[in-house]
Structures are given as structure tokens and as C-alpha cells.
Amino acid sequence: MNKILVIGATSALAEATARLWAAEGHRLHLIGRDTGRLAAIAADLKVRGAEAVTVERSDLLDHAGHAAAIDRAIASLDGLDIALIAHGSLGDQKACEADVGLALRELDTNAISVVSLLTLLGDRCAARQHGTIAVIGSVAGDRGRKSNYVYGAAKGLVGLFAEGMQHRFADSPVRLVLIKPGPTDTPMTAHLKTAGARLADPAKVAAAIHRAIGRGTPVAYVPGIWRPIMWLIRNLPRPLFNRLDI
């Protein structure tokens, strides 16, 4: 039985991954913003087999509350084996270009708050010499593109920060797993779906996340097809890249 903290537990990928953990009988602590949904998710995870599920409502943009929330989670779980940081928002790129305040808020949601949580969790795990920290990045963080570079920049920052922590923990039992999902069929991407984009099934993406965290994979593209695709995108010469409408 593992003791698992899920931050941003109402996100579709976090919830789908938590269902897999629940089925294995682990103990879960959920942090999210929407109490109604947290209660339904907690009840669901219990029915699916979780040993125990506790929840805490928290606004993750309130960085000052992070340390206490993490310590309450560790107390509630009576330890910590796995932490998954999954909150985020896919902001409107065009709106961000016109409103710097909005762009900074997006960076805060998707990057700064994550840096705060990673730092605190890294500290707790380093002290115990134990734990796997997983964070949801994105393929969007691999190269800035005109369609979503505010989101991409935030996810890129998370990726680089995670890479640095992996380096720091290279000689310790602490693991850091960076998950890079491609576009997935979640509420966050509902507008892409109506535009006809092909989106991955969240249950399948969750299965890949679950596997990557179990193995401690440093960088997991989910589904795996995004690894070669993003290699290509990253290495595309600029004159060619500039012609792409992506």
C-alpha cells in the first residue's frame, strides 16, 4: 500500500490516474479547489478500492499555503510515497497576448505554483530520502509555438526545473518523474475537440502515467508517439518551422 498525494485532483488526468491507484488499494490524499467535485471523486475512489481517501480544499495560487497543505497531507497519509502535481489551465493564447496580467496569471498557475510545490515536496522527500514526485508537464513545453507559447513557456519552465531536480536527486532514492502528455480529451481541451482535433483517451494516458510513475521514468511522453514527434518539432530548422501553422 502506497501513500499518495494528488495535487490538482479534479483534473481529468489526475482523476483517471487516481482511479488506477484506488483499484490497487492505496491510500490517497486529494487537494483541489472544487469541494463538490472533490467529494464525488473521493467517494468514487473509495468505492473503487482505495484504502482511505482524504481531501483538502486549497487554492494553489495561494503559495503561502503550500507548505502547510503538504504537511497536513503527509500527516493525513501518515507518510508519503508518491506525489502527483497535476493542476493547470490551458489559457487563451490570443487573450494572453493582449493582456499581460492574464499571461502572468497563466504562468503563475502552470509554472510558479508548481515550482513552489516541487521545492517543498523535494525538501520533504530529501529529508526522508524517500518518495517519487511526478509532475504533469506538456509536449507544448518542448518548443515555443505561436498557438500556445504562454502555456508552453510555463510547461517548459516546469520541465527544466524538474530536470534540475532530477540532477540533484541522481544519487538518492528520491525519484522525479516528468510527464509530457500530448493533447488529451479532457475538459481543458473541449474547444480543440469541437475544432476536430484528434485527442487521446484520458484513461489510456492515465495508464501510461501510472506506469511511468511506477517505474520512475525520468521523462515520459504519453502516449509514447509524442517522443519522436516532438524530437522532430524541436529539431525542425527555423525556416521550415516558421511555415507551420501550429
Binding site: 481529468a12 464525488a40 471523486i41 467517494a43 468514487d44 468505492v47 473503487r48 475538459p187
Partner: peptide, 19 residues
């Protein structure tokens, strides 16, 4: 499809409450 939670189960009677 997002209202897909299993809300309660009584292992004695077998009564399941779900969304």
C-alpha cells in the same frame, strides 16, 4: 460522461449508488 462516479457501495446488500 464526466459525471461517472461510483458514489457508494454496500458490500452486504450489494446496493450501488452511482452517478
Amino acid at each position: 460522461r464526466r459525471l461517472d462516479h461510483l458514489l457508494d457501495f454496500d458490500p452486504v446488500s450489494g446496493v450501488l449508488t452511482c452517478a
